[in-house]
Design a protein around this nucleic acid. Structure first.
Length: 736
DNA sequence: GGTTAGGCTTCG
């Protein structure tokens, strides 16, 4: 690793190796090739140095491309650059803010903070012997790579009696719990490339010395553990002087060791090990089934992990504490509100503006100790939370959440660091919901209480939906629309009396662009069972037209076949013998996955009830037989019914051809974006707030088409909302 | 000097 000086007064060119080519920051993408390239820019920010160990540091900086115009957004020109090891410290000490530097030997990753800081979507990482910095500052520093100090034993080579250092990918974990002895204990199961699974018990009196594991797939490094033999298998226990580091297991995220210990060793070799294990684990489908579920998808009786923010808490009694939490999504079931006196409640649920976003979590027994230490505002993950439907004879059933006593299935809770990658989705959802709540509160009170009789008065506020057409038609009462002879077009002013479906994900449909036939989207449970059935009878044959390879599945002995066709230009990958979870996991890394089953020498799509193509999170469904792979691709579409009302009466309308316009989304984006699903939910809640009277609902200005549909010899008159957009916050889906 | 736990749903 090196920092070299370049004479500021002279032309920098000759001293930077001539074979290097400049790549401009705005042109950098995740797939940019970095070898023999350099980036040149001004240092506009240096963060405090993170001191990990002797000669081992991390430094975050921001480097800016020369801006030809002032209106170029920082998302193009300003990029996060992270330095590792000795280079980090030297950069901090040698290079000043405003200095111009030339960077080479970097790698590119997806910036996890791009949404938060508005900077470039990538970040540069400078580590290892390849990394060089050419600086305009006045000293030269040359550094050397530290030699590895520790050796790590593969899990397959552990023998009872050894004291070893090990690395592993976490496949099961319990948060620290009190033992009958003097210590807390963390129980883990880990694995590595040998696929051997090893149990670990970490003992320490101090909770903060325990491994900070947040999810399966995290990577753990243990120093000085003792190998034992118990109940027929090998496991490890911490011994005197043990230490532990953990890392996020996701490929492409920055490798930052997680520990509360100030003094630990972390080298280039560690980084490579973490990278290797991440890569291996991704292909093992270890992370196939994420256990975290948003409130919007919780079903009664479910056990699940909840990532949430604590709004308020209250001690119920010695063995029970109430936590009021939210994740910004709305549960499909009514939520129980556990009432406590305001003076007994620490924190406030006001931000959630209403109770249908707030989940009441009753925390019992051994978990009370952790719960009592929590401060409102904290971000949490609650493991193995139980959703319980509470029914009484007098009230309708409500969902309540219990964190039962004990530690079975990893039951427990843990605070997540505010900048955790696992919180990105939550931050985005909460930001959106909070803005919506604030806007709703900011609306003048008379929006919600305008009596219908004041209609003739010109309203001083903007309607909740507006026409975007340029017809000069006069506005008419709904009764005129109802009594007309189709086809006709009208402008109306109305309120929403009711809408369907109430579960908005049911509004998302599949439509055949040829025959306009409509299909429901199958749920994951139904899809999973089709895949499962196909696995049972699988018999891999050899194919003359494709190269076939095999992956180990999550089940011992079961293989997944990957067929790469010789003829293919579109890079389609045919997958056989995989579960739905495995297909989803594999498609995270490889695009264009086609699940198939063999039929002699040929491949056939699995079944038209499952997607014929997975592209990342996107799923493509088909019907019948035509263009692609003999399948007619279906389009995503939105369909809703709205019952409108004005002083003259009511009218059943459809939101269909212009539904995407109405919500300012595309149905295909909605299918893969929780944020956009929230946006639709938010819009409908604004048009028709739950529990509101008609007088409290906002007015909409709509364009309505009246037309007839002939079916089975009968003609029906239909009404559709066209050329209309709802008003409210505009959101674009996160870049996938 | 080296126990404790050694996954595998509460029952409110």
């Amino acid at each position: 690793m090196q920092i070299r000086v370049v004479d500021a007064a002279a032309n920098a060119g000759p001293q930077v190796p001539a074979h290097l080519q400049r790549i401009f920051i705005p042109q950098l993408t995740l797939s940019s090739i970095c070898t023999h390239k350099f980036v040149k820019g001004k240092v506009i920010q240096k963060c405090p140095l993170v001191d990990l160990d002797k000669d081992n540091y991390i430094l975050k900086t921001v480097i800016q491309e020369h801006k030809p115009q002032h209106d170029v957004p920082p998302g193009l020109t300003d990029i996060n650059v992270i330095f590792f090891g000795k280079l980090a410290k030297e950069f901090l000490e040698t290079v000043q803010q405003e200095d111009v530097v030339v960077l080479t030997g970097f790698t590119i990753g997806r910036s996890p903070t791009a949404i938060k800081d508005g900077l470039h979507s990538c970040y540069l990482q400078l580590a290892g012997g390849e990394a060089h910095v050419y600086s305009l500052s006045p000293s030269v520093i040359v550094t050397v790579n530290p030699k590895p100090k520790y050796t790590y034993t593969p899990l397959k080579d552990l023998k009872p009696g050894m004291i070893v250092n090990i690395y592993g990918v976490v496949t099961f974990f319990k948060q620290p719990f009190r033992t009958k002895g003097t210590d807390y204990c963390s129980t883990l199961k880990i694995t590595d490339e040998s696929s051997v699974k090893i149990g670990c018990s970490v003992f320490s009196e101090k909770v903060e010395e325990h491994p900070k594991v947040f999810k399966n797939g995290d990577i753990i490094r243990l120093h000085r553990v003792k190998v034992q033999f118990f109940n027929g298998s090998v496991n490890v226990v911490t011994s005197l002087g043990f230490s532990v580091l953990t890392f996020d297991g996701s490929v492409g995220t920055p490798i930052v060791p997680c520990t509360s210990s100030r003094n630990f060793h972390f080298s280039e070799q560690d980084k490579q090990t973490v990278e290797r294990l991440r890569q291996w684990a991704t292909n093992q489908a270890l992370l196939a089934a994420p256990s975290t579920v948003q409130l919007a998808h919780v079903q009664p009786s479910m056990y699940f992990d909840l990532t949430c923010q604590l709004l308020a808490k209250a001690k119920m009694d010695g063995s029970c504490t109430l936590l009021k939490v939210w994740d910004g999504t709305r549960c499909a079931h009514p939520l129980l509100n556990v009432f406590v006196k305001p003076e007994a409640l620490e924190g406030s649920v006001n931000v959630a503006s209403g109770t249908d976003l707030v989940a009441n979590v009753l925390v019992y027994d051994n978990h009370v100790e952790v719960a009592q230490e929590l401060k409102p505002g904290t971000f949490l993950r609650i493991y193995n939370l139980h959703a319980i439907l509470q029914t009484t004879s007098t009230t309708p059933s409500h969902l309540c959440f219990h964190l039962h006593g004990g530690t079975s299935y990893g039951r427990g809770l843990r605070v997540l660091p505010k900048d955790s990658l696992d919180l990105q989705q939550l931050h985005r959802t909460l930001e959106l919901v909070t803005t919506s709540c604030e806007e709703a509160l900011d609306d003048p009170v008379d929006i919600w209480s305008t009596p219908p009789e004041s209609l003739s008065v010109i309203c001083p506020f903007s309607p909740a939906a507006v026409r975007t057409c340029d017809h000069t038609l006069e506005q008419v009462p709904l009764s005129n629309v109802k009594s007309c002879t189709p086809p006709r077009l009208f402008h109306v002013r109305a309120q929403v009396r009711s809408f369907q479906p109430r579960r908005l994900y049911q509004a998302l449909k599949l439509r055949c662009p040829h025959c306009r036939a409509l299909f429901d989207i199958p749920d994951d449970e139904a899809l999973a069972s089709v895949f499962q059935k196909a696995i049972r009878g699988v018999r891999f044959g050899s194919l003359s037209w494709a190269a076939t390879g095999f992956l180990d599945s999550s089940e011992t002995g079961r293989k997944i076949a990957i067929h790469l066709p010789n003829w293919d230009k579109e890079e389609l990958i045919f997958l056989e013998g995989a579960t739905l979870e495995e297909v989803c996991c594999i498609s995270k890394n490889l695009s264009n996955i086609v699940p198939v089953r063999s039929c002699g020498e040929s491949m056939v799509p699995m079944d038209l009830s499952v997607p014929f193509l997975f592209q990342g999170k996107k799923r493509h469904y088909g019907s019948g037989r035509t263009p692609i792979l003999g399948i007619q691709p279906l389009q995503y579409a939105l369909l809703m019914k709205m019952e409108l009302e004005d002083e003259s009466g009511s009218l059943e309308t459809l939101l269909w051809d212009d539904a995407e316009k109405f919500f300012q989304v595309t149905a295909a984006d909605v299918a893969v974006s929780q944020e956009l699903q929230n946006k639709i939910q938010w819009t409908m809640n604004r048009l028709c707030p739950p529990g509101s009277t008609i007088a409290e609902r906002p007015w909409l200005e709509l364009c309505i088409a009246v037309y007839t549909v002939e079916e089975g010899g009968r003609s029906t008159v239909c009404y559709q909302v066209l050329n209309t957009e709802s008003t409210g916050p505009h959101v674009t889906p996160a870049q996938e």
